[in-house]
């Protein structure tokens, strides 16, 4: 495991990206990827929660008995999700409404618990915070990439601003659920191929 901040960043964005390697935590966020703005807000939310809950778990790691640590971690995560929910509702009421139940579902996002458990438990608070933020970032860029394609082809807009000329037909499928699975699968395919090629090159 890398322990310099720069290595952690590289690891979480690419080599050990939580989404590619383990397909963790796409439940709560894949659903909102037909719109870039919502995806952006949602990813920021996940970053916020991952960072702060890793930080808190790391600060409290000596205080939490090992036996109940899962439930304590869940409560810490739920605490930050509630803060996020209240913030969203106060400052971005429209987006909060559009996201609906998916904000609450950040609690069950496996990445957050995974980072808190794997990194926060055994590292210092600041490093854990950094690890959480970068994990969230690694997660964010993947989802933003998917949302970019879905919104561009589905609605012809980016962040709600029309970019595609109207004579290009809109792909209705991109707005609906299956396209998220296809794009995600396609992205995994590309990335895995690149990684395999690199491995073959370094091996030879």
């Amino acid at each position: 495991m890398a322990d310099r901040p720069a290595d952690i960043l590289k690891d979480n964005l690419w080599f050990n990206n939580p989404v590619f390697i383990q397909i963790l935590g796409i439940c709560s966020t894949l659903a909102v990827t037909n719109n870039l703005t919502n995806t952006f807000i949602m990813s920021m939310g996940v970053m916020f929660v991952t960072g702060f809950s890793s930080f808190t778990v790391s600060v409290m790691k000596t205080l939490i008995p090992r036996k109940v640590r899962m439930i304590v971690q869940t409560l810490i995560i739920a605490f930050y999700v509630i803060i996020l929910d209240i913030l969203l509702r106060a400052y971005l009421p429209d987006i909060s409404k559009a996201l609906g139940p998916y904000v609450g579902l950040i609690i069950t996002n496996c990445i957050i618990m995974g980072r808190a458990e794997a990194f926060g438990q055994s590292n210092g608070p600041l490093l854990s915070f950094w690890d959480g933020i970068t994990s969230g970032l690694g997660y964010a860029w993947v989802l933003m990439a998917i949302a970019f394609v879905r919104e561009l082809l589905g609605f012809g807009t980016l962040f709600g601003i029309p970019v595609l000329p109207t004579f290009i037909p809109r792909w209705t499928i991109m707005v609906m659920a299956p396209s998220a699975f296809f794009l995600m699968g396609g992205l995994l395919w590309i990335i895995k191929t690149i990684m395999l090629k690199k491995e073959a090159n370094s091996g030879a």
Partner: peptide, 17 residues
């Protein structure tokens, strides 16, 4: 090779959806 594992599963789920 690049599609093995989760990749193909996601495509399958897409078709099911």
């Amino acid at each position: 090779a690049g599609l093995q594992g989760p990749g193909i599963v996601l495509f399958t789920i897409g078709f099911m959806a």
